[in-house]
Design a binder for these strands. Structure first.
Length: 803
RNA sequence: GCCGGUUUGGCGGAAUGGUAGACGCAAGGGACUUAAAAUCCCUCGGGCGAAUAACCCGUGCCGGUUCGAGUCCGGCAACCGGCACCA
């Protein structure tokens, strides 16, 4: 009998299911809690990808270790099940997207269970369950009541050919991803969430998180906090009129040569002179029809039109021309800027194009060649002359404040979140419009607003949502006795994933998102692993909802995910991203069948650091399989198992202590590849040893079972245990066994490694020197030389400087 | 352009500032076998060499700090990811 992965995996999968091995009693507060979760998958028709098991294995290892360490571990899984592919499938096949989605979920679940993850399936949730989206809708309704949701006419990507609105991700270079038809921007009624109200907290609280630096930076950049000064300019020709600009470089105010309004700025229409009117209107019309993309793809070409009026610079009373220019964004700051050609690259380009003057107000560059954006002493700046940027900002701001013409402000790049989609397969937005045109949130007791069945899931040609064709019995309802019409927009896919970590804690609760006591105990999530592609959107949206729930007292902590980690991609064997078109896709089912789930898990963890992209390697997978066989042989093959003894000869003491220490630390640090390397070292040592102390081998099997749970359980049973290995107490080690009395250290001569000596760990410098001098190699190097200096670091190095 | 990350043998990768290359893959050799597979053991950065003798070179490139740098500091390059007229 040898290692038969199929038989072993089948046996233990059934055992875990039958014994409910991984059930987590969330009400049991007697043990410390550990909440570890994965980003839940979208159950596509394609089935599981080999990338999925990577992150899932990582969380599973940690979950298993924590269980053995005595934690009450919550390790759930669920389904992010609304989404476009199911809707498109439904349109094509003219059947409800739910049946397709449920089938995919069943397939995903079977695949995931074949991989031996220790999920507590009693916590399983799907975002498409009405019992789940009831609470997604509840959160939206609460947000509306707290003035965080509003309706606005927002330009959307509309594709006339397809007759539908598209998400930004579905628009590539101004054309629809499917079909390649032109996409235009037209305003449409949309629900919007006021995430901007949370911009400061979303930024500030990033510092409290144990998250990858890159992700924190991405979120910071996305939020885009920027502090500067708002300055009021009055119009020379209409002294009663004024506008405000935002600048981060108030120190250059004396260099302002013109000002620009965005085409959307309300003053454009009212200020423009009759002579300029035609040209300005044509310019603004053109800008309005440009998509964001084509407006920004113009990049270097800065254009604008003079409005015929002038603005007065409050710092020196100078009148400067006022333009409309589409390089100024209507949606950021005040929608107006002061232009300092000498010290801003964009203003420089614009001034060059229209032959506008420029004045250098800060020395250090050459403005005949380019704008100078560095620091230096100011000039042509009156009382700010000679000051650097920071000091000039201070004195000029103070002056503006004294004049009542300026004050410090903070701006954010972050925009409000367009939350509605003109699609069928999403959560209905729980709003109704009464005949007075007012928007009203559906009462909690009326939730959920269940998606109605439709005859036809296609979007309307006019871009109206599919739900507008819902039966009248659904569309027409009442609100507090008044007749009302239901909202037909649905929520984006991000909605359900913005709070699912809360629902896992208490998934059956019918009266609340979850029991408050449980929430207080279990949140935040201790470890959250998923792809970096969610670094901004999902992770920012979830933080936003969490902070809102904090504000209304639902959760007690400020952040949902204390520790976050991103797994790297599994690349094809050729080192390229896996894709059907490249023909380098590896199917996990094939691997589970040929080499077993344990081999797949072990390989993916051993291939390299968790966060790195790693190429698939068939020979590497074979290596993992061989290692499992090598391990299994110790209990399975009598020539090895006969070496297991109950008496400790001591020969594996150091190796075992190193193993336990290293594996415990590395698992905690998610450094699985090095933990596995140490396990291999230990197994190699066991192979060489005359006898293997049984408790050491059992400790090894426990740690190994976190990686390879099927074969781990099998070995545990063969070692004589009747209970699952999952709750066996985590191995400990005697630190004294780690400190060998003798160590080998390097001997350096003038900083170059020349020799190695073995000596007592705590040997003195004199002793080390004596031993080194007795060594042939060192003796050779010292011949005829004088030792000028000795650097001795006990246990590390002996460096002799000679001359 | 800006912000992050990466760069170490034939390959994946190890190295609290202390003998670079752990562990694995591939390759080569040996044992076992009638033979093969499997398994077990050994070798395996480059150069010079008969050598598992000695020496020299070596962690993308150029400099610096240090007794000592893959690791710290300054500059540069290439690649990957994100953002991109945000005033």
């Amino acid at each position: 009998m040898s290692y038969n992965h199929e038989e072993i995996e089948k046996k233990w999968r059934a055992y875990w299911a039958e014994h409910n091995t991984f059930y987590c009693d969330t009400h049991d507060f007697s043990k410390p809690k550990y909440y570890v979760m994965d980003m839940f998958p979208y159950p596509s028709g394609e089935g599981l990808h080999v990338g999925h098991p990577e992150g899932y294995t990582a969380t599973d290892i940690v979950a298993r270790m924590k269980r053995m360490q005595g934690y009450n571990v919550l390790h759930p899984m669920g389904w992010d099940a609304f989404g476009l592919p199911a809707e498109q499938f439904a349109i094509k096949q003219n059947q409800h997207p739910e049946s397709f989605t449920r089938k995919n979920i069943a397939h995903f679940k079977d695949q995931i269970q074949s991989l031996g993850f220790s999920y507590d399936w009693s916590k399983e949730i799907a975002t498409i369950d009405p019992s789940y989206y009831k609470w997604t809708q509840w959160i939206f309704a609460k947000m509306y009541q707290h003035d965080l949701a509003y309706v606005a006419d927002i330009p959307v990507n509309y594709c006339p050919e397809l007759g539908t609105v598209l998400a930004n991700e579905e628009v590539i270079d101004g054309k629809s991803e499917r079909g390649g038809y032109p996409v235009i921007r037209i305003p449409m009624r949309q629900w919007v969430l006021r995430i901007t109200r949370y911009a400061d907290r979303l930024e500030k609280d990033l510092s409290s998180l144990n998250w990858p630096k890159s992700t924190i930076e991405m979120q910071k950049n996305w939020i885009g906090r920027s502090s500067g000064v708002e300055i009021t300019f009055t119009i020379q020709e209409h002294p009663e009129q004024s506008f405000r600009v935002f600048t981060t470089r108030v120190d250059t105010l004396f260099g302002c040569q013109y000002c620009c309004l965005a085409p959307e700025h309300p003053l454009v229409k009212t200020l423009v002179t009759p002579e300029q009117k035609a040209e300005v209107e044509a310019y603004c019309d053109a800008a309005a029809h440009k998509s964001d993309l084509s407006r920004t793809s113009l990049e270097k070409d800065k254009t604008g039109v003079f409005l015929g009026v002038h603005a007065i610079n409050p710092i020196n009373g100078e009148a400067v021309p006022l333009f409309v220019a589409d390089y100024v964004l209507g949606s950021y700051g005040t929608g107006a800027v002061m232009a300092v050609p000498a010290h801003d690259a964009r203003d420089y380009a614009f001034a060059k194009k229209y032959h506008l003057p420029m004045v250098e107000v800060l020395k250090g560059g050459d403005i005949s060649k380019a704008a100078f954006e560095g620091d230096g002493p100011h000039c042509h700046s009156s009382f700010a002359d000679g000051l650097n940027i920071a000091d000039a900002k201070r004195v000029i701001t103070a002056k503006l404040e004294a004049l009542g013409k300026g004050h410090e402000v903070v701006n954010y790049k972050l925009r409000d979140w367009i939350f509605s989609r003109q699609r069928y397969w999403g959560e209905p937005i729980p709003m109704v419009q009464t005949s007075d045109g007012k928007e009203n949130a559906v009462d909690e007791k009326e939730l959920p607003v269940v998606l109605p069945e439709l005859d036809d899931y296609r979007p309307n040609k006019d871009g109206k949502p599919p739900l507008s064709k819902a039966p009248a019995s659904w569309l027409h309802t009442t609100w507090h006795g008044e007749s009302a019409v239901r909202e037909t927009n649905t929520m984006p896919q991000w909605a359900g994933s913005s709070w699912y970590y809360i629902r896992y804690i208490d998934p059956q609760n019918e009266n609340a998102l979850a029991d408050p006591k449980l929430l207080e105990h279990w949140l935040p999530v201790d470890l959250y692993i998923g792809g970096q592609e969610h670094a901004v959107l999902h992770l920012l949206y979830a933080r936003f909802w969490h902070k809102f729930l904090y504000d209304i007292g639902v959760v007690k902590c400020k952040e949902p995910f204390a520790r976050l980690y991103h797994q790297g991609m599994i690349l094809g064997p050729n080192g390229e991203k896996m894709s059907k078109s490249r023909g380098n896709v590896i199917n996990p089912d094939d691997i589970v069948h040929s080499k077993g789930a344990d081999s797949l898990r072990l390989f993916e963890m051993f291939a390299g650091p968790l966060s790195d992209a790693k190429p698939w390697s068939t020979t590497g997978l074979d290596g993992s399989y061989r290692f499992i066989e090598r391990v299994f042989r110790v209990v399975d093959d009598p020539t090895f198992s006969s070496r297991l003894t109950n008496e400790n000869s001591g020969e594996l003491d150091t190796s075992y202590a190193s193993l336990v220490k290293k594996v415990t630390e590395d698992f905690e640090a998610l450094s699985f590849n090095t933990a596995i390397a140490q396990m291999m070292v230990f197994v190699n040592d066991c192979y060489k040893a005359k006898s293997i102390y049984r408790p050491y081998w059992e400790g090894f099997v426990q740690m190994f079972s976190c990686l390879c749970p099927f074969v781990g359980e099998e070995m545990w049973q063969r070692l004589g245990h009747n209970e699952s290995i999952a709750y066996a107490p985590w191995p400990t080690y005697d630190p004294a066994k780690l400190t060998k009395n003798e160590v080998t250290i390097g001997v350096m001569i003038n900083g170059k490694a020349r020799d190695a000596i073995t000596l007592a760990k705590n040997a003195t410098e004199e002793e080390a020197l004596t031993i080194a001098k007795a060594s042939e190699k060192t003796k050779h190097w010292l011949e005829g030389k004088t030792i000028r200096k000795v650097i001795y670091v006990p246990g590390k190095i002996l460096n002799l400087l000679i001359g």
